[in-house]
Structure formats: C-alpha cells, structure tokens
Amino acid sequence: MVLLQVLVSGLLLGGVYSLVSVGLTVVFGVVRISNFAHGAFVMLGMYSAYWAHELFALDPYVAAVVIVPLFFLLGMGVYQLAFRHTIGKDPLVQIFVSVGLLVALENLALFLFGADFRTVRTFAGQTAQLGPVNLPVGLLIAFVVSLAVALALMALIQRTKLGRATRAVTQDRVAATLMGVSTHRMYSVAFGISIACTGLAGSLLMPIKAVYPTVGTQFTLVAFVIVVLGGMGSVSGALIGGLVVGLVESLAGYYVSPAYQQLAYFVVFIIVLLARPQGLFGSAVAAEIGEEA
C-alpha cells in the first residue's frame, strides 16, 4: 500500500515537472534555443500568483487567466530584446545570454521580495482520499492541467499552420526563409508559448510549493533533464519524461533517503546523457548532443 502511495505521489509530482518541461520543449526541443533562465520564469510565475493572491485576493488558478497571456507577451519581449540577437551566432552566446538573464531575474526577485520562503494557503492545499491513497488536491489539479496543456500543444504543433511553419524553420532555416516564413516571428511566438507555460506552471505550483528567488534553478535542471529524456522536441516525450522523473524522485526518496531525492534525477540525467543520448523515445538526436565520432 505504501508503494502505491509512493507511485501515485511520484506520478503527480511528475505531472508538475511535465508542465515545466513542455514549455522548455517548445524552445529547446523544437526551436533549439537553450534557455537556462527557464526555471527563473517559473519563479516569476510563482511570485506573480503570490502577489495576485496577497494584493487582490485572487486564487492562483484564477490569476492564471491573467498571468498566462501576460507571460506570453513577456516571452515575446524577452526574445525580441535578447535572444533575437543570438540567432545565427556561436551557440555559446545563447548560453551566456540566458545565464545573464537567470542572474538578473533571480537577483531582481531577491532585491524586490527578499530571500524569505513565501506560501499561499488555498483549498488546493487539502488532501483528498481515494481508497487507501492520499491525493493532494493541488498536485492533482496540476497533473490534469499539464496533461491538457501537453495535448493542446501537440495539436498546435501538428495541426496548425503556425506549428508547421515553426517545424519548417527548425529543420531548415534558409529554406524556410526563402519560403517566406519569418524566422524571428516564429521564434518569438515559440518563446511566448514557452514563457506562457512557465506562467501557468508558476500559478499551479504556488498553492503547493513555497516560492523564493532561487527556486527556479531546480526547475531549469529538471526541465532540461526531461527534455533530453523525452528525446528533444517531442511534447509527448516531455510529458512521459516528466512522469518518469517524478517516479524516480519519489521512489528514491522512499527507498534511499529523502535527503538524496534530488540526487536521483541527476543520476538519471547523467546516465541518459552518457549512455543513451537519444533519450528514451527519440533516435535522431544523438549526434546533436554528442559529437559525431
């Protein structure tokens, strides 16, 4: 029975991870922009939800309705201001720009809000009982929403003109430009979607997790782990990868020690990077992760 609880907790946790990762999949997996500040935007999303609750007494779930579109615009703005200038340059430039962004955002939060852990108490903090299993309501909601978001994004990428254009740009930037697809417009929309996802993730996380300025670092790492694990650029891969990482963390916490819970996904990550760089589901990305020899 305890094992069942551990598995369920792991899956629910994995749902949250999936949500964070799906956003990164769009920019890193599909468009190949490495954004090491991804987690910092999740942190901003959490603070946004926190202050919406403190100042306007809005439930984080309600606040998400405002936060998500705002973060979409924020993402487009960040692309136009910073990442736009990294396209076509040495990939290191992009890494440094995103690290600079990470430093700036984390410390801005530290300056404005201090280092305190802040929490919000809502109905989502309650726990439902399903037979012998405890289901934290907030986690359950986050899980369901992340499933829905992943499905919606999959449909967006597969079915719509926008999605097709984005994929075309990624596959062959020159050809796409010749065909009249504006690279920068596609990329900025992709960035908007990615950051909108972090806004949503932040809103969903706020009722179940404390926020502090450096909370994003762990999300950045987890998200990259999952995107790689999911085979880069596959939304369904990121979804399943998220669940796997959630399970691994939960099982490690139970069988090894809670203190080393976080070590578990680093171990998984390192194994995936070194032994099976094509991820769990993809196949063609090995050459991209490692060098050709």
């Binding site: 890193f28 490495s34 090491f36 990939p91 290191l92 890494i95 790492l221 990259f224 782990v225 790689v228 203190a259 080393y260 976080q262 070590l263 680093f266 990550f269 390192i270 990077l273 070194l274 760089p277 991209e288 992760i289 490692g290 060098e291 020899a293």
Partner: peptide, 28 residues
C-alpha cells in the same frame, strides 16, 4: 573524461549537475 562527447548546452548541463551533486553531498 565522462563529458567529453557532450557539446554546447549539454556539456553546460552536465557541469551544473556535477556541482549540484557535490552541493547535495556536502549538505547531507
């Protein structure tokens, strides 16, 4: 030696993960 094959962002990630592992170990 372990991370030699990794390029660009993947090498960066592996190095971050390395320091994080040591951080967790040093705390625990």
């Amino acid at each position: 030696g372990l991370t030699l094959r990794l390029r660009g962002p993947f090498f960066v990630l592996a190095t971050i993960a390395f320091a994080q592992v040591l951080l967790i170990l040093a705390i625990n």
